[in-house]
Design a protein around this nucleic acid. Structure first.
Lengths: 134, 134
DNA sequence: CAAATATATGCCAATATTAGCATATAACAA
DNA sequence: TTGTTATATGCTAATATTGGCATATATTTG
């Protein structure tokens, strides 16, 4: 019982649900700095939220240099069931704004890997503009 | 988003999950005093837990005299989806003990309605024994 | 080696949740 | 009306959670 309670508790927080939404909607493995920009939240806030979700069993991590990529544990049946439930009910303006920002951030990847890091918002917007304008 | 967070929060508590389990497993409408005996928890504790679940949308109530029967809102699609997910994952010794006690308590109904009320455990055990021994 | 950078974590104050008791409410019974 | 009973709720202390800052860790680069 404690396991399932821990999972529900993990999902009953706005930041953690927004993070979960981004993984479900994008289907991608994501690093902390990409999530920071999509959610517009500080690094410690994203890291802590990911820590809670990971220890509840939703995510595992893969290291690539100084980057750490989080991925959903779709292998686990319980997680899979929760995800497929969530898919139908993650509907909110907040979520879709996050998704839009993530999409732009992901577009800055090289070989499908993040090469941006933690940068001021102004610089991020410049990079995105550059990409768009060509 | 707030709605779904409220639902997860409602389910991330042992008492509230045990209550939800009893409704799912028994398929019955239940009153507070039946739940008290099945869960072996004080009245205020059961009432408060039901209040949280109700305001999260899981339950509605029907009054019958001084008794109030709670029933799951199976009409709501979101609730239905959560219930069908839960069915597969409500597995624990605690749950099955609750279910056993509820079964005995339900057996004391007349015309499928509770006629027991709030009584000391000793007396409850006597009623159950009486019923069993014939 | 030192510097830089992505991520994690320890600490603390602010805030939210819980558990327990006492009491309130509402319906019935006499 | 008064008493009884099933249920709800207000209050408070104890406990848990959160948000923010500062700092730690680990890896890469030079």
């Amino acid at each position: 019982m404690d396991k399932i309670i821990e999972k529900f508790k993990a999902l009953s927080d706005e930041t953690r649900l927004r993070i979960t939404n981004l993984f479900i909607k994008s289907g991608k493995n994501l690093c902390v700095c990409e999530l920071m920009d999509a959610l517009q939240l500080p690094q410690y806030s994203v890291s802590k939220a990911l820590g809670v979700l990971k220890s509840a069993g939703f995510f595992s991590t893969e290291k690539e240099g100084t980057w750490i990529y989080y991925k959903m544990n779709k292998g686990n049946a319980e997680i899979k069931a929760i995800i497929s439930f969530l898919k139908g009910y993650l509907i909110s303006e907040v979520f879709s704004e996050d998704e839009k920002r993530l999409e732009k951030r992901i577009a800055l990847r090289s070989n499908d890997k993040c090469v941006v890091g933690i940068i001021p918002e102004k610089e991020l917007l410049r990079l995105i503009k550059e990409k768009t304008d060509g």
